[in-house]
Amino acid sequence: MTPNRKPMELGRVLLIGWMAAVFVFLFLPIAVIIIYSFNGGRNLYVWTEWSARWYGAVFDNPRATGALLVSLQTAFINAIIAVSLGVLAGLALARRKGRWTGPYLILIFVILGIPELVSAIGQMIWFDRIGLFHGIARLSIGHSLFNVAVVALIVRARAEGLGEQLEQAAGDLGAPPWRAFVDITLPLMFPAVLAGLLLSFTFSFDDVIISLFVQRPGTSTFPIYILSSMKAGLKGDVAALAVLMLLVSFLGVGIAAALLSRGGKGRTLGGLMG
């Protein structure tokens, strides 16, 4: 055995141990909430027995199902808005570069980096001043302002890796621009577009701060309902609600990550990650 063999093995063991400790630190709270969602007792803190009754109680609660429906409607409309605007913005950034590209990218990163509380207060005042009082519309537009920027960066990264040769060839063969976009550009960018759609849906479904400020009476979202339920004391239905949100979030983010890794050559969020 070489003299350096033992220090290298010791360093590897320490590295693996450190990584395991980090993963336990990150995921232990998630494991705890999943386990306690099956606590049959009335008080969430006091374990009594294994039971799935709280999952049934969630769907028997009209307030919970109403809040879930509001969140699903909001997330879907927000995703459509974000993709419709974000795809065009991402294509313009990748294919029509000019002096405007730098300031526009700065604006996108400002949208991504601005504190959510500041954005929520600004949106609340803006919606009230323009007379937009429809609850679902306020929530959908409010959530989409952030998600448009996310979709734009994802599509930009994908479009920059494709080139314009196929679109130009279609143009030479007489295809109008809209036909080349529908038949060639959009199918090639489909993984990025679908990933942006799923991420937009997930970010909207999980949002708390913007929803709290821009919501109207009768349009409380699922996360807001969970917060309000905690005021009466933590019960098993709160844990069950949290697990359901967790499943939706993991599903959306997981599918989006898989699509980006396959279709985006390892790029995500416009090159911010990977």
Rank of each mutant, 00 (worst) to 15 (best):
Pro7Ala: 04
Pro7Arg: 14
Glu9Asn: 14
Leu10Ser: 14
Leu14Pro: 01
Leu14Ile: 04
Leu15Ser: 14
Ile16Arg: 15
Ile16Cys: 10
Trp18Ala: 14
Ala20Lys: 10
Phe25Thr: 13
Phe25Trp: 12
Leu26Met: 13
Leu26Phe: 05
Phe27Arg: 11
Leu28Cys: 09
Ile34Pro: 14
Phe38Ser: 04
Asn39Asp: 01
Asn43Val: 15
Tyr45Ser: 08
Tyr45Asp: 07
Tyr45Leu: 11
Tyr45Phe: 11
Ser51Trp: 03
Ala52Glu: 07
Arg53Thr: 11
Trp54Tyr: 08
Asp60Ala: 10
Pro62Gln: 11
Thr65Ile: 07
Gly66Ser: 12
Ala67Met: 07
Leu69Met: 13
Leu69Tyr: 07
Leu72Tyr: 04
Ala75Ile: 00
Ala75Gly: 00
Phe76Glu: 05
Ala82Trp: 06
Val83Lys: 07
Val83Gly: 04
Leu85Phe: 12
Ala89Leu: 13
Leu91Asp: 02
Ala94Thr: 08
Arg96Asp: 09
Arg96Asn: 12
Trp100Gly: 10
Thr101Leu: 01
Pro103Met: 01
Pro103Leu: 01
Leu112Thr: 05
Leu112Ser: 09
Leu117Ile: 09
Val118Glu: 00
Val118Asn: 01
Val118Trp: 01
Ala120His: 02
Ile121Pro: 02
Gln123Val: 00
Ile125Ala: 15
Ile130Asp: 09
Gly131Cys: 04
Gly131Asp: 06
Ile136Cys: 06
Ala137Asp: 03
Ser140Pro: 00
His143Gly: 12
Ser144Met: 04
Phe146Val: 04
Phe146Ile: 06
Asn147Ala: 09
Val148Trp: 10
Val148Arg: 12
Val151Pro: 02
Ala152Asp: 09
Leu153Gln: 09
Arg156Cys: 08
Gly161Val: 03
Gly161Leu: 03
Leu162Cys: 02
Gln165Thr: 11
Gln168Trp: 12
Ala169Thr: 04
Gly171Ala: 07
Asp172Ile: 07
Leu173Pro: 10
Pro176Gly: 04
Trp178Pro: 00
Arg179Ser: 03
Ala180Pro: 00
Ile184Glu: 08
Pro187Leu: 09
Met189Arg: 09
Phe190His: 15
Ala192Asp: 10
Ala192Phe: 01
Leu194His: 10
Leu197Ala: 13
Leu198Ser: 05
Phe203Gly: 08
Phe205Lys: 14
Leu212His: 05
Val214Pro: 00
Pro217Thr: 04
Pro223Asn: 13
Ile226Gly: 04
Leu227Thr: 02
Leu227Ala: 12
Ser228His: 11
Ser228Thr: 02
Ser228Val: 00
Asp237Ser: 08
Val238Gly: 07
Leu241Asn: 13
Leu246Asn: 05
Leu247Asn: 09
Val248Leu: 15
Leu251Cys: 12
Gly252Gln: 06
Gly254Thr: 11
Ala257Asn: 12
Ala258Cys: 00
Ala258Glu: 10
Arg262Thr: 13
Gly263Arg: 11
Gly270His: 10
Gly270Phe: 02
Gly271Asn: 05
Leu272Ile: 07
Gly274Gln: 11
